[in-house]
Amino acid sequence: MAELARLLATHAGAGRVEWIGLRPERRTAVTAVEKAELTQAGLTGDHARPGKRALTLIQAEHLPVIAALSRRAEVAPELLRRNLVVSGINLAALRHARLGLGEAEIAITGPCAPCSRMEEALGPGGYNAMRGHGGWYAEVIRPGRIALGDAITTIREAPSSP
């Protein structure tokens, strides 16, 4: 069991913030920004609410998969309506872990299921293209400023589970 715990706690390195998007209101266009203030209620200028879903993240590595499954050449992050696109770290392996993100600290709390808007954004089959690739939501443990290029580091590992 100690070996499994070691494997679960080992990552190749830190992740990186590649894109930040704000959704000022429901169903409005997403605006890309270079930096933002992360509060208990989510990103300043975003319509998120405090709690377990204050921030949404998706892996950059999943964008080509979503594009392929929706028969598109590429998928722009703003179509998917997540707050952050991150690269270099497996978010699924970090559920319930505490992460350093710029000056802030977050905890990955659960997977983001696709919404029916993905059919609108990606075309027929967009909902199913997102299944399993929709990203993760997180709660804010400690507010702070975040910016493009910030590292995403593990502060405290998630409880061990297979």
Results as ranks from 00 to 15, higher is better:
M1D: 12
E3Y: 11
L4H: 09
R6D: 13
L8I: 10
A9D: 14
H11K: 12
A12C: 10
G13T: 10
A14I: 07
V17K: 12
E18Y: 04
E18L: 14
G21M: 06
T28N: 01
A29K: 09
V30I: 13
T31S: 12
A32C: 08
A32W: 04
A36G: 01
E37F: 09
L38C: 04
L38P: 04
A41P: 03
A41W: 01
G42K: 00
D46R: 00
H47F: 01
H47P: 01
A48P: 00
A48Q: 12
P50Y: 03
G51D: 05
R53V: 02
L55G: 01
L55S: 02
T56I: 02
I58C: 03
Q59A: 06
Q59W: 02
E61W: 05
E61K: 07
L63G: 00
P64G: 03
V65I: 11
A68Y: 05
L69N: 13
R71F: 09
A73G: 12
A76Q: 14
A76V: 09
P77N: 02
L79E: 10
L80R: 05
L84P: 03
G88N: 03
N90L: 11
N90H: 12
A92M: 13
A92Y: 14
R95M: 15
R98E: 15
R98V: 15
R98F: 10
R98N: 12
R98I: 14
L101S: 07
G102I: 07
E103T: 05
A104T: 06
I106Y: 11
A107W: 08
I108Q: 09
G110E: 10
P111L: 12
C112S: 08
C112L: 06
A113T: 12
C115H: 05
S116N: 09
M118G: 07
E119A: 05
A121E: 14
G123F: 08
G125M: 10
Y127A: 03
N128K: 15
A129M: 03
H133T: 05
G134W: 06
W136K: 00
W136E: 10
Y137H: 15
V140I: 07
P143L: 08
G144M: 08
G144F: 08
R145G: 00
I146P: 06
L148K: 02
A151C: 07
A151D: 14
I152L: 11
T154D: 03
E157Q: 15
P159S: 11
S161V: 15
S161L: 15
P162V: 10
